[in-house]
């Protein structure tokens, strides 16, 4: 089984405040845990197989959970997969506590190992960080390219496909046992060849986490920015016959009421095809 917990669902820049309190204002970070037992609470064990998707500000909340397991004792191995290297997906990493504990290993994955490494190193350079360089981090670091032909990471079968986004971004599918989720943030729907590959990647998944930053009328003013509307997301999800969609990468100035409305509209668009729509929010747990 898979447990997904959302720690950051916002795009572009963190937007904390009263207007965004229910859905939260942290930038992208999703924790995916695999577990086999049907015992109550099995999905919450800190040392289950697990992968962190993106390192936005939500990572600061996730790390307190991770620290309860082996990572808190300098015996853990964290797997952090980066869809791409825009700041909102990285900016939680300079304060990622497991990096400061000797004995831990942290593997960073992305479309290109050199770009992963140069991004992490840039986060810690002296002009931007008091750490003054990754050589001062206590954990062992590893930088890896996500294999486009598929691979296994901590018990998850991982496969990827390219998004349509300025500078590139990856969609990531994680399969554990007979459950699967697909994470497609920072994708602009509309290029048929790219969309078809994503539909193939997502086909039959239990959950598709999808970029739904804009309303259609906002999207019309932001063509080429690399994000989608909630309506386009639902239409693509119907083609892939997934069970659930989590609308993700919320616009920083969309308040809770706006996201409520977008969720309702998306569910309406899904019609009676049996597709369930959830608006992702910080703290949301989904057991699949």
């Amino acid at each position: 089984m898979i447990r997904v917990r959302f720690w950051g669902c916002r795009g572009s820049v963190a937007s904390p405040g009263r207007a965004t309190a229910r859905y939260g204002g942290n930038t992208a970070c999703v924790h995916v845990v695999g577990y086999d037992s049907h015992e109550p609470g099995a999905g919450a064990h800190p040392d289950n197989p697990q992968v962190v998707l993106d390192g936005g500000t939500g990572l600061a909340l996730l790390q307190s959970v991770l620290m309860r397991g082996l990572l808190g004792r300098g015996k853990g191995h964290a797997h952090v997969m980066l869809t791409h290297f825009h700041w909102d997906h990285l900016i939680g990493l300079p304060f990622f506590t497991p990096l400061f504990i000797p004995g831990n290993k942290v593997s960073f994955y992305g479309a290109c190992d050199q770009r992963v490494q140069s991004s992490i190193e840039r986060l810690f350079t002296s002009v931007y960080s008091p750490i003054k360089g990754t050589e001062h981090l206590a954990a062992e670091l590893e930088y890896r390219k996500l294999d486009p032909t598929g691979e296994t990471v901590d018990g998850f079968e991982v496969s990827v496909a390219d998004n349509r986004h300025p500078g590139g971004a990856l969609s990531i599918r994680l399969q554990y046992g007979d459950r699967s989720i697909v994470y497609s943030t920072d994708h602009e729907i509309g290029d048929e060849a790219i969309d078809e590959k994503l539909v193939e990647l997502a086909r039959g998944a239990d959950l598709w986490i999808m970029d739904a930053q804009y309303r259609p009328e906002q999207l019309a003013r932001h063509i080429g920015w690399g994000h989608s509307s909630h309506i386009d997301a639902v239409r693509l999800a119907l083609r892939a016959k997934v069970r659930k969609v989590a609308l993700f990468h919320h616009k920083p100035d969309h308040d809770d009421h706006e996201l409520d409305r977008m969720g309702l509209e998306a569910q309406q668009e899904a019609g009676d095809h049996g597709l369930k729509i959830v608006v992702a929010r910080d703290g949301l747990v989904m057991d699949l």
Binding site: V13, A14, S15, P16, R18, N26, L61, G92
Partner: peptide, 14 residues
């Protein structure tokens, strides 16, 4: 770092 938490709404997370 900025942070969004429901128990920090008065002082703020920016």
């Amino acid at each position: 770092y900025p942070l969004s938490r429901r128990d920090q709404l008065r002082y703020g997370g920016n």
